[in-house]
Simulated assay, not measured.
Amino acid sequence: MSRFVEIRRDLHQIPELGFEEVKTQQYLLNYLRTLPQDRMEMKIWRTGIIVKISGIKPSKTIGWRTDIDGLPIIEKTGLPFSSTHEGRMHACGHDVHMSIALGVVTHFTSNPINDDLVFIFQPAEEGPGGAEPMMASEELREWMPDEIYALHIAPEHPAGTIATKPGLLFANTSELFIDFKGKGGHAAYPHETKDMVVAASYFVTQLQSIVSRNVDPLDSAVVTIGKMTAGAVQNVIADHARLEGTIRTLSPEAMDKAKSRVQALLEGIESSFECESEIDCGSGYYQVYNDPEVTGRFIQFAKEKKDIQFVLSREAMTGEDFGFMLKEIPGMMFWLGVGSDYGLHHAMLNPDESAIDKAISFITRYFTKLGHV
């Protein structure tokens, strides 16, 4: 077992939610401090870390971003290195992401290239979103990359597969939290109440018209309500209902349209059911748009490697706050196959760990080429 697989297993046991990654940050720092320090500098940003490796004769700065947080999921893998944090799990592969990043850092501390390298260990990708505020931080602004890269594990592809595409890769996303406030009362006297179970139910039904009748059919959008809560007992009419969901689109324009239609539908519900509503779109993520030139160069390199299986992927409705970095810096993201029977955010996700060393080897070779050694 390689040391980076061991690191992945260590990190898998201590998943933490966004901006709570205290143990994770300390683990990463402890490892980074064991590496040669002559060319390496580090900065702390909240629960994240920024690492710079100075090049021999730098003409640009190449960036790599990895996310470090976990999810509020109860792990069910039964693995001997399962999460020790109850109700928390690395169910999106960020433990794999971190171990790969540490492997690449390790290589270049002893094998510097001409150009500078900056490694961003970013907190809170799963929420509330760490990329956007990190981009605005003084710490990162001082070491801002000229181009930037990242990966995300893909359970559906065999271990070590590289998959990506130029242009749009991940969708625009927005959370959706809606509260309906009416008047409760006894179930036998509905005429004296304003029933928020009925109001919320009508609203959920009307939401379905947004995609079918308000979004360009040549574009794509998804509006999903994943959670609905209302009432406390069977014979009392609820004075409050809450909906929680998500909006995902393949263009910023479709996102704006979807949000405006949600607001319009809410105004109609307020009038029809004589109630009040409050909406919070929470944190939204900007689309992951791979720079065509940067991605074309990357794809060509991957296709030339006989030990790499490259797949031209399609865009996906998944969201990733790496999009905020790509909005300002030319770069790209790719999928890394990890061959799991269970998908992302599943309590039984179990990535094939052989992908870790394959990814480290591929990335170090690519960065070496980029760095003009």
Rank of each mutant, 00 (worst) to 15 (best):
V215G: 03
D38M: 13
A258L: 09
R297E: 13
F310S: 00
F19Y: 13
G87Y: 05
L250Y: 04
H94L: 06
L28D: 00
I279F: 10
V222A: 08
F119Y: 05
S54Y: 14
A232M: 15
S340H: 02
F119S: 01
G319N: 03
R3A: 15
L312N: 12
T61L: 06
P36V: 09
N214P: 12
A187H: 12
E304Y: 10
V338T: 05
R297S: 12
L169Y: 01
I73C: 08
Q300K: 15
G103H: 01
A221S: 10
N214S: 14
M317E: 07
W64R: 07
A124L: 05
G127T: 04
L11Q: 00
M135W: 07
Y149W: 09
L11I: 07
T47A: 05
M228D: 09
L79S: 13
A199P: 09
F121R: 00
G296Q: 05
E293Q: 13
T224M: 12
A200K: 02
Q208L: 08
E315V: 14
A232L: 15
S99A: 13
S59I: 15
E138S: 14
L218A: 12
D38I: 11
V118K: 00
H97Q: 10
T161I: 03
K165H: 10
F81E: 06
R46M: 13
G331Q: 00
M135R: 07
E270P: 09
H345Y: 07
Y31P: 06
I68V: 12
E320Q: 07
P252A: 08
G331T: 02
E132L: 11
L250V: 12
T34N: 05
V236T: 14
L151N: 01
T77E: 05
I363L: 12
D219P: 11
R3V: 15
L11W: 00
A355Q: 01
Q287R: 10
L117S: 00
G93L: 00
L28G: 00
R39I: 08
L17M: 10
F170G: 01
D115S: 05
V294G: 04
E16N: 05
I14F: 06
E270L: 11
E270I: 06
G127C: 04
R46E: 14
P351L: 04
D179Y: 10
L79F: 14
H346W: 07
V118S: 01
S59H: 15
L17D: 03
N350T: 12
D179S: 15
Q208G: 06
S251C: 10
P133R: 04
P128L: 04
K52Y: 11
